[in-house]
Design a binder for these strands. Structure first.
Ligand SMILES: [Zn+2]
Length: 455
DNA sequence: CGTGTTTGACCCGCGC
DNA sequence: GCGCGGGTCAAACACG
């Protein structure tokens, strides 16, 4: 067992609102006093009375300053965040040179302004810096909205757009978007009400943090059994969500692979690396597969295969490789699949499988093992007849039939499982900006025996 | 054909 | 009651 302590910052930005481009950032302003509405309409009612006029302009000025302050604060925060990320990413990229697109990220967050919670009221106001010529009044966030109206309002040349949350049919949240009177570069977004569901981007975060928080679970379900089933469901949701998020999988795979390759020398003969991480009370397990050819058959299967099945297939694939002479295998790209796994103790956990990129597995002739002729003939015959469908589900029966013969093929060196353990922490910088930090703890080399591969 | 947007009609509270 | 302005409905429409 080797002990080490490397900080692996994935900079996943899991729930970044990025997508395209002009996603602006947010900030909410806190004013508990009822006061004016977002369009300053009330201010425009300047009365003839002198004092009222003064009051109006002062109040308007005050509001403007408040907006500026909020933006400055958030810009400071996001800049600080960027610096932090850059330093961490620099550390990672030193290990494995990788192109980063900081400029985009930085630029994007400079667009954004601040975000604060309105105490009470359930009304949230957000200021977004956008192109003044953009008349669309579309502000992206982590929800889906259906536009149900647009009105021109008094004293504001820009119309006001009305949206209703369409992520959940019963969600009462409404959203109003209108360009600011004071600054045509700013769009004011007003949210009203509270969502009765999770946002698209928060789905994963919920599964990992909030819902697994014991107190939260106990609040919802008193029975431990109910809590267990709840966790199981959430684990499955999480697995499905992550496996479909190519942004997540690519970055995670790249980060893990570069880190694990650097931190520990993986012997060319080890065909499986298993990395484990604990995420609060949720255990993540990373199965790194260095074998080519298996990747597509695993991650493109629907539903995702169980880990046990994957391991079984890896055994078969390894034998397949051993049957080839002086095989050099170069995998390229990286892929991650996610699934769930149940242990003997009944706990279900999330499993993330990683196909490692750019690995060269050299198998010299010294690895070739004498094998029984009939077995190898049978296997080779099968493989040549069904090269593509070797791992397909419809060949399951035949596959098992072959597999039963596999133990008769002698191994000189049993395959090795390398188990990595990480501590995973997820940081929420601001609404919509999260990243994951993984602390490498140690790794363990195990023989792949029945004890190590949980049935 | 289902889905989301446009846009004028409509509704409703408020001040006069 | 009436007009005004903000908010919503829904029929028509655009889009894939
Ligand atoms: Zn909602």
């Amino acid at each position: 067992m080797v002990a080490a302590s490397h900080a692996l910052d994935l900079n996943l930005n899991l729930f970044h609102i990025s997508t395209d481009d002009d996603t602006p950032v947010v900030e909410v302003q806190s004013d508990s006093d009822n006061e004016d509405d977002y369009d300053n309409g009330s201010f425009e009612k300047e009365a003839d009375v002198h004092t009222v006029g003064n009051l109006s302009s002062v109040s308007k000025e005050n509001k403007k300053l408040k907006e500026i302050l909020a933006m400055v604060r958030e810009n400071y925060n996001s800049l600080q965040t960027q610096v932090k990320k850059i330093m961490q990413d620099k550390e990672v990229s030193e290990l494995s040179p990788k192109k980063r697109k900081f400029d985009e990220t930085v630029q994007q967050s400079l667009w954004k302004t601040a975000n604060e919670e309105l105490p009470k009221s359930g009304i949230q106001r957000v200021y977004v810096q956008t192109d003044p010529s953009d008349k669309s009044l579309i502000v992206k966030d982590e929800y889906q909205w259906r536009k149900y109206g647009q009105k021109v309002t008094r004293d504001n040349p820009s119309p006001r757009a009305y949206y209703k949350c369409s992520l959940a049919p019963s969600c009462p949240v409404k959203k109003k978007v209108q360009r600011s009177l004071d600054d045509v570069g700013i769009v004011v977004v007003t949210y009203e009400g509270e969502h009765n569901h999770r946002s698209t981007k928060e789905e994963a975060a919920y599964a990992l943090t909030n819902k697994y928080d014991i107190s939260t679970s106990e609040r919802m379900f008193n029975s431990p059994k109910a809590r267990t089933t709840l966790n199981e469901v959430l684990v499955e949701q999480m697995a499905e969500y992550l496996s479909k998020d190519s942004n997540f999988t690519e970055k995670l795979a790249a980060a893990i692979c570069s880190k694990t390759l650097q931190a520990c020398s993986i012997s060319a003969d080890s065909s499986i690396c298993v990395t484990m991480a604990t995420f609060k009370d949720v255990s993540l397990q990373f199965v790194s597969v260095q074998l080519d050819g298996l990747r597509g058959s695993i991650i493109h299967r629907d539903p995702l295969p169980s880990v046990d099945l994957v391991v079984s297939e890896l055994c078969a694939e390894e034998i397949h490789l051993k049957s080839l002479d002086d095989q050099k295998i170069v995998t390229q790209g990286s892929s991650v699949f996610a699934t769930s796994r149940r242990f003997l103790n009944g706990i279900k956990e999330l499993v993330i499988g990683i196909v490692m990129p750019s690995l060269i597995i050299e198998r010299g002739s010294e690895n070739k093992e004498p094998s029984e002729e009939d077995d190898m003939d049978y296997l080779d015959d099968y493989l040549s007849r069904n090269p593509e469908s070797y791992f397909m589900d419809n060949k399951e029966g035949e596959f098992k039939k072959i597999k039963s013969k596999l133990p008769r093929i002698p191994y000189k060196e049993p395959p090795v499982i390398i188990e990595y353990k990480f501590e995973v922490a997820r940081y929420v910088i601001s609404k919509g900006e999260h990243y994951v930090n993984m602390m490498y703890k140690h790794h363990n080399e195990l023989l792949r025996t029945k004890e190590n591969v949980v049935e």
